[in-house]
């Protein structure tokens, strides 16, 4: 039977990639076309980071690499060799929630929750960047994270609350 995409995939050729994920150094064997997102979800079983559009349009896959927020769906795991990755699973300290996680709960900043890990990681990146001063700045600099439930007003409130507390 022909392959549904019209070509036969060659046998996977794997490469070693070392990532420090949420503080733990791990070496993975991945095919070169494995996105960082798939490496996190499928190889490391860290399914907190979500696959929404898989095209960099929705922000559900946002993680921090060396402290900066990126779309993990649009980078290859092999390109991030040697770097530190922080996902939603790495933000809390034990049972103590990260200030953004706490603020999202307190402000009811989600409904279905699917975009929330990406929203929170993106907000952590925004706080680290230190460019947002006003609610309009927050809205503009969070525009890469879509929320189809429309929790935007409370997402802005939650982020503003943490900004008011002096960051995270």
């Amino acid at each position: 039977m022909p392959h549904p995409m019209g070509f036969a995939p060659p046998p996977p050729e794997v490469m070693a990639v070392t990532l420090t994920v949420n503080g733990v150094e791990t070496t993975l064997q991945v095919a070169p076309w494995t996105s960082l997102l798939d490496a996190l979800r499928l190889h490391l079983d860290l399914t907190g980071t979500k696959k929404g559009c898989d095209h960099g349009q929705c922000g559900a896959c946002t993680v921090l690499v060396d402290g900066r927020r990126i779309n993990s769906c649009l980078t290859l795991a092999v390109m991030q060799d040697g770097r530190s990755v922080t996902t939603i699973e790495g933000l809390a300290s034990g049972d103590t929630l990260h200030p953004l996680q706490k603020a999202f709960v307190e402000n009811d900043a989600f409904q279905c929750g699917y975009c929330t890990p990406g929203q929170i990681c993106s907000a952590a990146g925004l706080l680290a960047e230190g460019k947002a001063k006003t609610d309009d700045d927050i809205r503009e600099l969070m525009s890469g994270n879509l929320c189809r439930c429309g929790a935007y007003p409370n997402i802005v409130k939650a982020i503003r609350q943490v900004m008011g507390e002096g960051g995270a």
Binding site: R68, R69, I70, N71, L74, S122, G125, E129, S143, G144
Partner: peptide, 9 residues
């Protein structure tokens, strides 16, 4: 252009 995440990449 783009989003904060994409501009970081």
């Amino acid at each position: 252009g783009a989003s904060a995440q994409l501009r970081n990449m």
